[in-house]
Amino acid sequence: MAKLNTRPNITAPDQFYAELIRTHEGLTDEESEALNARLILLLANHIGDAEVLTEALAAAREV
């Protein structure tokens, strides 16, 4: 049974997306890549659950 929630779960999607893009404003491509890595690690820690993380890693790779 999949544990990764792939149903819509972000309350205000447009607002989140705009904030995400704004966070990268003024950064070089390398800086953006590094920011994304930090962001993934922060979110992964928040999630914690190993099964969810494994599923997410596979989903991102396979889609």
């Binding site: 792939t6 819509p8 972000i10 447009d14 997306y17 893009i21 950064l27 889609v63």
Partner: peptide, 22 residues
């Protein structure tokens, strides 16, 4: 990076419901 995220959303939206509202 904005282009990368946009295309990631489109790619995920083909398979996962969560990305469609984005």
């Amino acid at each position: 990076v904005s282009h990368t995220f946009r295309n990631a959303v489109l790619r995920l939206a083909g398979r996962y419901d969560f990305a469609r509202p984005l």
